[in-house]
Design a binder for these strands. Sequence first.
RNA 1: CGGGGUGUAGCGCAGUCAGGUAGCGCGCCGCGUUUGGGACGCGGAUGUCGGAGGUUCAAGUCCUCUCACCCCGACCA
Length: 572
Amino acid sequence: MRWTQTYIPTLRENQAEAELISHQLLLRAGYIRKLAAGVYLYLPLMQRVIEKFANIVREEMNRAGALEITMAVLCPAELWQKSGRYFSVGKEQMRLKDRHLHDMVLCGTHEETVTYLIRGEVKSYRQLPLNLYQIQVKFRDEIRPRFGLMRGREFLMKDAYTFDATEESFERSYQNMVDAYYRIFRRAGFEPVKVEADASAMGGKAAHEFMLLVDTAGGEETIVTCDKCDYAANVEKAAFRDASKLSVDRVEKPREVVDTPGASTIEQVTAYLKVPATRLVKTLLYMADGKPVAAMIRGDRELNVAKLKSAVHAVELEMATAEQVEKYTRAPVGFAGPVGLKDVPIIVDPLVAQLKNFIVGANADQKHITNVNLGRDFEASQTADMTFARHGDGCPHCEGRLITKKGIEVGNTFMLGTKYSDTLDAKYLDAEGKEQPILMGSYGIGITRTPQAVLERCHDAKGIIWPTSLAPYLVSLVPVNMENPAHLEAATKVYHDLSEAGIEVLFDDRQERPGVKFNDADLIGLPIRLTIGDKSLKENKIEMKARNEERSELVGFNEVVEKVRGLAKRLV
RNA sequence: CGGGGUGUAGCGCAGUCAGGUAGCGCGCCGCGUUUGGGACGCGGAUGUCGGAGGUUCAAGUCCUCUCACCCCGACCA
């Protein structure tokens, strides 16, 4: 492609709106433009990157036995009402009415549609397993779109759905997709980290996420990994072993109400009573689907709302307002406690259950109670892990320690089980002629997010450095001076030779000074640059340089195709 | 949704406090010189100052309302 025949509007300065390096680069290098918050336009270079990545995904999905289809973006609201998600997904869903005033949905995922598709058609165990996928635009009205393609309201996604008759078959289908995901992300130039994830949002029994690890602001997800074994989980899901060596009292002491004037936070109470935070227990009030619950966690720990939500099986969970706290505890915020708390189920964290003689709020203004004990002073309705794992906590599976890291979620896999086949009535007949719900899995990959995520790592001060598999073209061909007939003639010949050989070349045929061309070439980040100027022409050669290497090499006109191929292979 | 901020030429910004001819840099167009890391000279084009209403002789500037966008927090590929 000739530069003058395509559209690559590079900018000399960063656009003010972009915070993240990868987002800045895509804007400045002329890959994307913004239309509205979280809505982007893909320019010719981006279009090619998307096609490159989508084709990798397509090849690996096909290899895994998945069948490509295309489902509609529009969906009658009725289907989502049936599955129940019309109400649980809420405002994140883009909704509209058609001309007949029928409620419609712009899909952000396709479990409902795909279940509709196979329901009634797949009736026998003989038709299973089945694996369907599509690569298509998705709509999610995110609370806060940000970081360019990382969190858009309209984006491209590969979504796959598996259907199985037996648990064993389901496990195989799931593992098959996991294997495909590793192949896909490795081909895209990075080693993904697979972590356990919270499955409750999708209503399944298990889930994993694939992360690209970064140490920049783009790492929206926190994950923990074990320094000894292969345990890895999203921090929302991560289990842990409390490794702090606390001395626990042997004898229960009589409880005592104490005045704690002006002390409502953990810091204030520990300072006032001169005790460590591990002796304090926070009682936090939440509203789970409109009903109050009290979560009791040790003073040094943070509540993990995702864990609490799944412990109480809530669809909606939010922190109680100050008014609600006062209504249930009859005390201002900061003094809630379990003793005498009525009509509110109490969930106790296992780390609290181990304690003796701990300190809690007294449900009275400016007062706490010391030497409180579970069983003697109050009853728990449930015990559940509700806190975040922290850096340095023990691994739940071995003697190792947990390490926290930042990552970008580029893919996920969900074991849905029968949630959608139950609600949307997708059943098959087994060998005995008995009707059974189909076991389903769903599997996503962010097609527009992943290339940007890769850029969080693949860049330097001058611009993008694409892995060859995602680069929009392999070669930047730069004649130093378009008005020098020798340069032009040599460049044109190389352009034709490479093109004939099937190598993708971007020929910078602009009437620009060399500095501009070199800077733009570095900015857009093609893996290989061929420069044609007096320096090399006087030896009748071409200068070949990898974008991510300093040194360059002179190659002859007859060997340029072979040399470019060789370098590309080395770069991978 | 809560908190903070910004809307002035394609991009980056000044001008707003203190009302009085709408500016700067880059980019863009023309001519000439230049050509191995974002050239130089001369000439030129480009604005509903986010929108609506109001105050005023006069509004980019003051007031009211409104829209959009960005950043930080509230469970997301």
